[in-house]
Design a binder for these strands. Structure first.
Length: 430
RNA sequence: GGUGGGGUUGCAGAGCGGUCAAAUGCAGUAGACUGUAAAUCUACCGGUUGUACCUUCGAUGGUCCGAAUCCAUCCCCCACCA
């Protein structure tokens, strides 16, 4: 199976400019390709991961990724897939975001020995002169054509500023620039980027009078077929972040572990590149779908947070909820096989420190503890949860929302508070 | 610049002087059932050590016993015309 076939088999291809040309290129030469990321936030979340995985796959096959973080375009905001304009970010915020996003990407993409490049389009747009740009680039774009773009069409109803309208020129220019300087000949991106990406390939061709051939391909949007929801959000409506300070490793593991049945095969193929496609299929059909989910969660966590953290999360979760295949009947190439379930421990359950003096005297009000631990956003919320019978401390159900926890009720220097079946916090006294 | 229509609690979208912390749908959370899944049913879904008080309906002022609702000014959006 060549890289192109693997991309296809794992479901990374939605639209492409010329499939046989792309296949030929990817199998015969070392290709420099690029993928853009919006620095709208300072942290990547699960939703960003899809193109990152495609980049990883291509890099593994010897191609050279260029991760472009849009320091310049981020100041504009892509109108694709939006009904309203984005909030404008200050230049400083964008610059900071670029930095932290690059840091996060470097966990997924190998950088050493020129194996990949990071680029920030602010580096070249800062130099561009308006008149030159309009003459050289603007002249190659047809407004008629741009108006026909889906992303523009949708926005025409609600209004679209010229700033946003020009987004595809800028993205196109990125491709031209990267082609000129790094000989980048392929762009990959999300399904919603198709219009912008094609604009880029056309620009490059026109700039060289059709003599250069460049291509692009889009990755399909991941949709949960059961709910019709876009994959990527969740864990309480909040994003699942790749930064362990925002989403703990345990929660990250749990996110994958709790994936929908209908998505498991797709997720394994796309997010666990180390498991061959056939194995992913057979795991799902093994009759033990929960083992497949454990493997997915373990491997995905391993990629984002490292082997040790992933193992801890797996063991901690198994300790709380049980293991799907403790006897290891199901064969897999995953290193999950080497883990010892008997050594299960709770250490990696998210924890929170609270000064011991809070528990002295009358003790600490339970809703306060829950807010402090990040289990809920307000004490009203906590009170409701308690009234709904969702809360327990060290497996003893709490029914009285006015209750306080006193120092003498705590055994040792920690206790576990839980809200619902799946949310735990270990509270450590300090 | 003119005319008309708007800005409501995460989103969509009612309300158009008191009965409004604000209908309904979606999203979300919890409980039951399960497989840490889905579907289904039930409850919750601004804040507050608790049923009364506080802060919310673009902003600021005003009318009124009382305003999301009326008036004025301002800001922003949309449509049509210029």
């Amino acid at each position: 199976m060549n890289v192109y076939q693997e991309l296809k088999a794992r479901g990374f291809i939605y639209q492409e400019t010329d499939s046989s040309a792309i296949e030929k290129k990817l199998t015969e030469e070392k290709v420099v390709f690029y993928c853009g990321f919006d620095p709208t936030g300072n942290c990547l979340h699960i939703g960003h991961l899809l193109p990152v995985m495609a980049m990883r796959l291509l890099q593994r096959a010897g191609h050279i990724p260029v991760a472009l973080v849009g320091g310049a375009t981020g100041q504009i905001g892509d109108p694709s897939g939006r009904n309203t304009a984005r909030n404008m970010l200050t230049k400083e915020t964008v610059a900071e975001n670029v930095k932290s996003i690059q840091a996060q990407l470097s966990r997924f993409i190998r950088l050493e020995d020129g194996a990949a490049y990071f680029a920030n389009n602010n580096d070249w747009f800062a130099e561009v002169k308006l008149l030159d740009f309009l003459r050289d680039i603007g002249s190659k774009f047809s407004v008629n054509r741009m108006l026909a773009q889906k992303s523009v069409e949708n926005r025409l109803e609600n209004g679209l500023s010229f700033l946003e309208f020009s987004y595809s020129l800028l993205q196109g220019y990125d491709f031209y620039y990267l082609n000129k300087t790094l000989n980048c000949t392929l762009e990959i991106g999300g399904q919603d980027q198709w219009g912008n990406m094609v604009a880029g390939t056309e620009l490059v061709r026109r700039m060289y009078n059709e003599e250069r051939e460049v291509h692009c391909l889009t990755i399909p949007l991941l949709i949960n077929p059961a709910t019709g929801q876009k994959f990527g959000k969740s864990i309480g409506g909040a994003s699942v972040w790749l930064d362990s300070n925002r989403t703990s490793v345990f929660d990250y593991y749990q996110f994958w572990r709790n994936c929908d049945d209908s998505m498991i095969e797709d997720l394994l193929k796309k997010f666990v590149l180390d498991i061959p496609v056939e194995e992913a299929e057979s795991l799902v059909r093994s009759g033990n779908i929960n083992r497949a989910k454990e493997i997915l969660a373990y491997e995905a966590t391993k990629l984002a947070h490292g082997e040790k953290a992933a193992a801890d999360a797996y063991l901690a979760a198994g300790c709380k909820f049980g293991f799907a295949d403790p006897d290891k009947k199901i064969q897999t190439t995953s290193s999950i096989m080497q883990l010892n379930e008997a050594a299960a421990k709770e250490d990696s359950i998210p924890s929170c420190e609270i000064p011991a003096e809070n528990f002295e005297g009358d003790g600490m009000w339970i809703p306060k503890i829950m807010v402090e631990a990040g289990l809920c956003k307000s004490s009203s919320d906590a009170r409701r949860l308690i009234q709904g019978g969702a809360v327990s401390i060290d497996d003893v159900k709490i029914t009285d929302p006015t209750r306080n926890i006193k120092l003498n009720e705590i055994h040792g220097d920690s206790f576990t508070i839980r809200s619902g079946k799946k949310n735990f916090r270990k509270i450590r006294l300090k």
